[in-house]
Design a protein around this nucleic acid. Structure first.
Length: 595
RNA sequence: GAUCACGUAGCUCAAAUGGAUAGAGCAACUGCCUUCUAAGCAGUAGGUCACAGGUUCGAAUCCUGUCGUGAUCACCA
């Protein structure tokens, strides 16, 4: 298995990028080498990878043309027979020769290439918080996006070597929980999710909406009829219930537990369909008091101040914020009180180097304030906190509001996607296969749809037409993968993969494009881990699929008359399949061997 | 009103750290299933990168201003 170049074997093969870097220090004595500006050569020009010379020209005080020739010649000599180059203006274009492609291909075929990626990341313990729903209504589109982003980022960070703790905190206490409780108490007549055959979270959500309906009716009536004022309003009743809850009233606690249990059962089902998991689950009811003690200490240290009515505040005016309430005058905690507590608890309990909150953009201000408070309190780990702020999912009719029914809940969306997928499925699958495949395809379509968009960007969701099954979609990629598996089944019936007889291998444009895109994968992984952005992987995987389909549709891949060429192609196809599967796994999307 | 995001094709999204003539998909229109899976491929059409200045060899990308959209500014979460 010898290779046609002088001093390059597969193991110490150096890429153009590496040799170029080396050339800078050898030719110009520049050490360390400045960041080089590489880009993939534009279609209009001859070449595969381009070094942009303008920045170097500035640094080295030499004209671009001269530098280009200098570096180009050096790289050309080092990689004799592997590359050629040309200079156009300030652009040094390197052209890969067949042997260079062969090297790239062999590198990718080396053992455990995908699992052996060595990045410059030092392994860290990272906690990722995501999803964090309220225990009084079903999960909706916003939660879907949140969970998918969190889940995917966790996988990506794992892939580059970090240790991840996935955590969610469930907001299971507070006035909003009592609202659904009181509505059920007043109007439920003892019905349960089982008795009317409704999913638990939807069941409780129904009563949360009912509360709102009753409450609004009361307001309308009261404004018309002042005499009703002495009647206890439903809001007052829910407040009373909250007080009872806080004082540990047995009946209330029992009811609360019962209703929460219904909700959790519902959540579990939805999370399972979406394939979302957590390593830890926190409940607000367990930790909401913790923050209070911290506040008291901060008060002693004069980090906070107390108003006459007993409420506790922090003054962040100098840092460009406001005064912020931390504890109500009746000494009950607000949202941020609890967040202070949970952060402290987490760092006390776990050894973590970084805590990433994946929470919507609407809470940017909240987290800025939270981080500053913790830093004021003197916690050295305050700089290890970060907020990954993702854009809202809005409907054409505006912001989703569950109380107003302007909402798309996760379960009905999932069901709808199942049925669309099923309609398009080949009929020669068994009933069971059709069930299984349509689920994988439907979920794949949902996940890809949300993850292909940069998390920072807002998503406008059109219920009827948003999620596609054609073009830049999950199913397109799944379909491409099925084609690959199908090719492999056929090929392996005939013969097996070999790397022999490859000297002087020739590659056509389609194969070259394939090899070029495939070898970008580590770079994409690294970048998406740094930027905490799964969409980079999604878009990359799509591009891989596209280029593969060009090859597939235009060239016969398995040709019994040309075993060597078939073998080369099948090796490329094999890597393609692995990368598609690997990338989609990072997005949480399953692949199918046939569809 | 203040602060922070965002404005790229009719629609949904791309565009390494500022790099060459801004790319895909959907929708529309033309072709391609006797050939490895047509959820595919080949092609046509579609753009004042919101607008106006500035920075420099070079701007969708950085700065300033204007307009537009959204979010936040609660003893809500």
């Amino acid at each position: 298995m010898s290779i046609m170049s002088n001093n390059n074997t597969t193991n110490d093969f150096k890429s153009i990028e590496e040799v170029t870097k080396q050339s800078i220090s050898i030719l110009y004595g520049l050490n360390p080498c400045p960041k080089l500006d590489f880009q993939y050569t534009k279609k209009e020009y001859l070449g595969d990878i381009t070094l942009i010379l303008f920045p170097l020209s500035k640094k080295l005080k030499e004209p671009v043309e001269k530098i280009g020739k200098h570096i180009g010649n050096y790289v050309h000599n080092q990689l004799m027979g592997l590359i050629s180059f040309s200079i156009i203006g300030g652009f040094l274009n390197f052209i890969f020769e067949d042997n260079y492609y062969l090297h790239l291909l062999k590198k990718m075929l080396s053992n455990n290439y995908l699992y052996d990626l060595k990045f410059k990341f030092s392994s860290k313990n990272i906690m990722v918080e995501y999803s964090s729903p309220n225990a009084n209504k079903p999960l909706h589109l916003g939660h879907i996006r949140n969970s998918l982003i969190g889940s995917s980022i966790s996988e990506i960070l794992k892939m580059v070597g970090h240790k991840i703790i996935k955590i969610q905190i469930i907001n299971d206490r507070g006035i909003h929980i009592c609202k659904s409780m009181i509505a059920w108490k007043e109007f439920g007549k003892g019905e349960t999710p089982d008795s009317i055959g409704m999913k638990g979270d939807h069941f409780v959500g129904k009563y949360y909406c009912l509360f709102d309906k009753v409450y609004r009716e009361e307001i309308r009536n009261n404004s018309k009829d002042q005499q009703n004022k002495n009647q206890v309003s439903i809001l007052q009743k829910s407040r009373n219930l909250l007080k009872k809850w806080e004082s540990g009233d047995q009946k209330t606690i029992v009811l609360w537990k019962k209703m929460n249990k219904w909700v959790y059962k519902g959540f579990k089902e939805t999370y399972e369909k979406l394939g979302i998991t957590f390593d830890k689950v926190e409940y607000e009811s367990n930790v909401y008091e913790v923050g209070k003690n911290i506040l008291k200490e901060g008060l002693k240290k004069r980090i906070f101040f107390q108003k006459k009515d007993g409420s506790i505040w922090i003054d962040l005016i100098k840092e460009g914020f406001d005064q912020k309430l931390l504890l109500r005058s009746d000494q009950t905690s607000v949202y941020i009180t609890q967040d202070i507590g949970t952060a402290v608890e987490r760092f006390r309990k776990y050894k973590i180097d970084k805590l990433i909150y994946i929470v919507g953009k609407e809470q940017d201000y909240h987290f800025q304030v939270l981080f500053r408070i913790l830093s004021r309190l003197g916690y050295v780990w305050a700089n290890k906190l970060s907020h990954l702020s993702y854009g809202m999912v809005d409907l054409p009719s505006g912001k989703m509001k569950s109380r107003e029914g302007n909402i798309i809940d996760a379960d009905s969306l999932i069901l709808e996607m199942y049925s669309i997928a099923k309609k398009n499925l080949l009929k020669d699958f068994s009933k069971e296969e059709q069930e299984e495949y349509s689920k994988i395809i439907g979920i794949g379509a949902i996940k890809y749809h949300f993850l292909k968009v940069d998390p920072k960007k807002r998503i406008l969701f059109y219920p009827e037409k948003s999620i596609d099954f054609k073009g830049n979609t999950g199913p397109y990629i799944q379909y491409t993968y099925s084609r690959i598996r199908s090719l492999e089944r056929k090929f392996f019936d005939l013969c097996s993969l070999t790397h022999e007889y490859w000297d002087n291998a020739k590659f056509d444009t389609y194969e070259r494009n394939m090899i070029k895109i495939l070898q970008k994968y580590p770079f994409i992984l690294k970048k998406s881990a740094e930027k905490l952005n799964p969409s980079l992987i999604a878009n990359y995987i799509y591009e891989v699929s596209q280029i593969f389909n060009h090859l597939y549709q235009n060239k016969k891949i398995i040709n019994p008359l040309d075993i060597i060429q078939s073998n080369i192609r099948m090796n490329i196809v094999h890597i393609t399949g692995n990368i598609l599967k690997s990338g989609m796994r990072l997005l949480g999307i399953k692949m199918l061997d046939r569809m």
